[in-house]
Simulated scan of single mutants.
Amino acid sequence: MRGVGESVGSAVFGTLGRVMARTQEKRGLPVDLLESDDAFLAIFDAPGAHSSDIQVRFEDDTIFVRLDRFRSPREEYEMTYPGRGLALDGRTTLPDGAAVDPAGATATLKEDGTLHVRIPKADQATAHDGSDIETEPSADEQ
């Protein structure tokens, strides 16, 4: 009887975990958008990500981020509750009229699990529409 209870419990936890992971994947990554005299800085939560897991692009005044996280197998453990989303998206749109130079943009994954995307400001004559932005690894990945 105990085996049946464990089996039912595992099935319930597995289903609940998958639902939670899908819910997390549908919500956008939390982001703060900051502005200085010379740049915009978008700070995205990027928990559990490595720089190779991240794609960043800029298009139509919007910063798009995609995290494709991977779980490392744990030899001593069995997955009971797969609740963390693996494919996470985020975006933020710059204010109307913002003139930026995406070719000078940087994306840096910090040790605290945040992704900092910095896009320098430009005058209207040198502003660009779109660009992919390479993600630099944090110090612990180097």
Rank of each mutant, 00 (worst) to 15 (best):
T92E: 11
H50L: 14
E76Y: 07
T106D: 03
K26G: 00
L33R: 04
S138I: 00
G3H: 13
P102A: 09
E59G: 00
T93Q: 12
G104P: 01
D38R: 13
D140L: 11
Y81M: 14
A139M: 10
D123F: 09
D89W: 02
E78P: 01
A39M: 00
E6K: 14
V4F: 09
I43S: 06
A125V: 12
A46P: 05
L41I: 08
E25H: 02
F13G: 00
T92L: 08
P73L: 12
L109K: 07
H50E: 13
P30W: 08
D68A: 13
R74P: 00
A127W: 03
Q124Y: 07
V12H: 05
V4G: 00
V19A: 11
V8I: 15
G3P: 00
A39L: 02
T15F: 09
A99C: 11
R18N: 14
F40S: 02
D37P: 00
M20S: 11
P120Y: 06
R84V: 02
Q55F: 00
V100M: 02
D61F: 01
K26M: 12
S72T: 14
T92P: 02
D68P: 00
E134Y: 05
P47F: 02
V4C: 03
D96Y: 03
E35C: 04
P137K: 04
A42G: 07
V100R: 03
E6H: 14
R2L: 12
L115P: 00
T114V: 04
G28H: 09
K26Y: 10
A21K: 10
D123M: 07
K121M: 10
L86K: 13
D32V: 14
L34Q: 12
Y81W: 13
G104T: 04
G14D: 08
A49V: 12
T108L: 13
T114G: 00
E76M: 08
G14Q: 11
T23D: 12
E141L: 07
Y77A: 14
G14A: 09
P47W: 02
S138F: 01
E76F: 08
A99R: 06
R2G: 14
V56S: 07
S72I: 11
G104W: 02
D123E: 11
S52A: 14
F44G: 03
S51N: 10
T15M: 10
E141F: 01
E111S: 15
E6G: 09
T135M: 05
A46D: 04
R91I: 01
A107T: 05
V19T: 10
P47Y: 05
G48K: 09
P137M: 07
D53L: 06
T23I: 06
D89I: 00
Q24P: 01
V19R: 09
L16G: 06
V100C: 02
I119Y: 06
S36E: 08
T93F: 01
T126L: 04
R69D: 03
P47L: 04
K26C: 01
V4Q: 12
S7W: 13
F40Y: 15
